[in-house]
Amino acid sequence: MSWPDSEPNPDLSVGPDLRQGWNRPENRRRGFHNAHLIFRRTLSIRARRILRLEDAPDPALARVADDLGLSRLPGFSALVVAEEGRVLCARAAPDFSLTRPHSIQSVSKMHMNLIAGRLIARGLLNPKASAGALLPGLGSGYRDALVGDLLDMNVANDFSENYADPAADCYREEEALGWRLPADGMPEMTLSQFVAGISGGDPVNRSGYVAYKSANTDVLTLIAAGLTDLPAALAGICDAAGYEGGFHISLSPEGLPALSGGGVLSALDLARFGLLFARGGRGIGGENLGCAGYIGTCRRAAGPPLSRARPGQRYAGHLMTDGTRIGHAGYGGQYLMINPDSGRVAVYLGVLENPSGYDEAFMARLVAALTRLLS
């Protein structure tokens, strides 16, 4: 019997450049705009009720956005500034829309703030516990790391997150996140296998700055999965935010959500997610996710500084904070920023098409611009 011809999946297969098809610079925009259709496996959730957002254009705010040139930044996809129930400013690129799904990459990590905050509040997760005590199979890179340090991105080990190096560990991690395939005939690496294989010694971060490692979120995902039903927790977040469209997130081979970066949301729904934080984790129906205290603690925490390029910003509890505004950046050109004092949120979605997909100077400019919109 003859078998039909087949070929490797061009989006998920890794080429000689060590990148999978959808994340090559020439394909990245299409990839980020269609990530929910490209990832190997995906969990999709719809909210029970939708938070209504009324168009309420603010001409003065629009002038500020135009002066800042946000819609002219490299790879611009969408911009939204909103307060509870109102969209004050909105822009979308000609090839995109405010309701179309977009990869939010590491903005996804903010879900871990909500999930961990609730577990801590309920006494189920101790920030002073070692990861190895909760996950006995961990290797030397994480077994002695403290949960609180994982949440604050304050752990030293051998995991490398250098986006300019296609052989860096953060790209190997993508196999365990469902973003790429191993070589033909090889089994897919599970999230558990990936984090267990990370090596290291003394986990204390002595660099003076954040030691940003997406694998920290992977370890926390495995820990949280042993303490709560993660799909149910994500469904609760979707209901509390009141998304209009679907929330999509890639899954590891063992079916765990890729909280380190696999989330996909439209610009308007990402604004709804930000508004959930602005309300202190209280849902659109008044339901309490039980994490308001943790959000407030992280907002004012003296976590490690982010970088020299972003003075004043620190990292705490899977949030980036300057003591007033909270949020998170995403690989490729995303940022969600929230000012809980005013209740205003700003969303920027974009796709950097340079070789690495990252530019620290770009992110510093973006943070400054969004800060001005929320001032």
Rank of each mutant, 00 (worst) to 15 (best):
V14M: 05
L366H: 02
S2Y: 07
D149K: 09
K213L: 13
D5Y: 11
S199R: 15
Y348D: 05
L68D: 07
Y142C: 03
V204I: 15
L119Q: 13
A368Y: 00
W179L: 08
N162F: 08
L191S: 05
C291Q: 04
P136W: 09
V107A: 05
A258L: 05
D239V: 05
R180F: 07
A369C: 09
M112V: 15
G197E: 10
G139E: 05
D229G: 05
F159I: 06
R300P: 03
I120P: 02
G296D: 14
A309Q: 14
E83T: 10
G85F: 10
R49L: 06
D5W: 14
R46K: 15
L227D: 13
R46M: 14
G296I: 04
H248Q: 11
P355V: 10
D58T: 01
D95T: 11
R314E: 13
L306K: 02
P311T: 10
G280A: 13
R279Y: 10
R24S: 10
R279I: 09
A168T: 09
H328F: 13
G263F: 00
E26S: 13
A35Y: 10
T371N: 13
D322T: 07
G255L: 12
A309L: 15
A62F: 06
L336R: 00
H318V: 09
L374G: 02
L270Y: 05
V345Y: 00
E254M: 11
I295V: 09
P166M: 10
D58C: 04
G185D: 04
G21E: 04
H36V: 06
Y243K: 05
D5Q: 15
L366K: 03
Y209V: 10
A90S: 11
A168Y: 06
L151P: 00
R172D: 14
G262F: 00
I198F: 06
L68E: 06
A368D: 02
A309F: 12
C170G: 03
G343W: 03
A301V: 03
D359R: 08
G178Y: 06
P340Q: 07
A241H: 00
G303Y: 00
L73F: 06
